[in-house]
Design a protein around this nucleic acid. Structure first.
Lengths: 207, 207
DNA sequence: CCCGTCCGGATTGTGTAACAATCTTCGGGT
DNA sequence: ACCCGAAGATTGTTACACAATCCGGACGGG
């Protein structure tokens, strides 16, 4: 009972392709070409493309088409600031709700997610999944949704940077982060994200 | 030199119409009808509608068309939580940047915005403008942008509720809020928004 | 009377073909 | 080197058509 339309599927397909990182930032996506290779009409392709533009994975200029978004240092910083706003509020809500210690049904999935950093699929995916889980644990639908959008953007940036976390280091760091967040709350979030931002920007500068 | 396309203009036109609040929540927007009265093709209308769906002013169900968004109590709560995340982070950034007192070039426009609550255009607009200005003063592009989207949603909700602030009360409250935010920071934001949320939800319950 | 089924109208989802509007490129003239 | 214009490429839009889906109401069995 798939209530999904062709444009939905194409948007998903294109999103995967963009997020895979094989397309360099700035690469144009031509309507005619995609229409031909997907066996769809240009109108349908257009609709799918517009959706990805709304998700900020592509950027569009009138009469010049859409291209894979490219990030400036300022873009990354602004993105991380927004992430910080969302994740720190999520952590605040979690700590407000669970005054003493976080219950097992919150903590266990998070611990499992940390372990998957070392022994789970691609590191970047697992890493994104951990943070998503942390935010969604707060139970605020809109904060979660906004965060997931950002996650996709961040993933795109990582893929373009071809940055690779070391799984073990990441696992240790996030184990500490999970503890720190329960203990200190928002400041821990900000420090974690600030650290990540400097690492990423430095990684890009030396290239 | 407006590089705007017809779909852009239609989207703006429709957004104004929706935000004016004359359309009840749930009112369907028929493609054919709009196309006829605007002298545009259905495809173009579709594109404009999809954009407003992305902005959450309209909701779309496959094969059932788009309608004006209607808010549940939970929607409003979740929306305010997200607002809280953004506005409190903006305030934190402002206080972090201006350790002692906020400089005049930040404070003066804010004070002017507060005054416009009593002697400016429509109250809801001025109110939204004040909060937008507060958030944008923090200078984080993405937080500002995310906040502006939310503002449009909130405005739609207010218009549907036909809720009318009392200009004078609002002016006094926000004068105090502006002082409180400088003094206490994030908690002041959360209290202000929580207050607003309860007022709005109660206003709707008694109807 | 209540209930499910089926039909036809209304509306959306998609396709094809075409043209207009705009950008881009390239070559010619100066 | 520079400006200009023509040709090509690409997007923006239209018109028309048809398939897919939803909706409401008629119809018939219980």
């Amino acid at each position: 009972m798939t209530r999904s339309t062709g444009a939905d599927r194409l948007a998903d397909e294109l999103r995967d392709r963009v997020l895979s990182g094989v397309l360099a930032p700035g690469t144009p996506l031509r309507e005619e070409l995609i229409a031909a290779e997907q066996g769809l009409s240009r109108h349908t392709v257009r609709r799918a493309l517009e959706r990805l533009v709304a998700e900020r994975l592509l950027v569009s200029e009138p009469f010049r088409g859409v291209r894979v978004t490219s990030f400036s240092d300022d873009d990354v910083t602004a993105l991380q600031q927004l992430r910080g706003a969302l994740e720190s509020e999520a952590v605040r809500l979690l700590r407000a709700e669970h005054a003493e210690a976080w219950p097992a049904d919150v903590l266990d999935p998070l611990r499992a997610a940390v372990r998957r950093l070392e022994h789970g699929g691609p590191v970047e995916e697992s890493h994104a999944a951990f943070h998503r889980l942390l935010v969604s644990s707060a139970g605020s639908a809109r904060i979660t949704e906004a965060y997931e959008r950002l996650d996709a953007e961040m993933l795109l940036f990582l893929r373009q940077l071809r940055f690779h976390y070391d799984p073990h280091t990441l696992c240790v760091e996030h184990d500490a982060y999970l503890a720190d967040v329960q203990l200190r709350g928002e400041p821990a979030v900000r420090e974690h994200l600030a650290h990540a931002t400097t690492v990423l920007l430095r990684a890009r500068a030396t290239r």
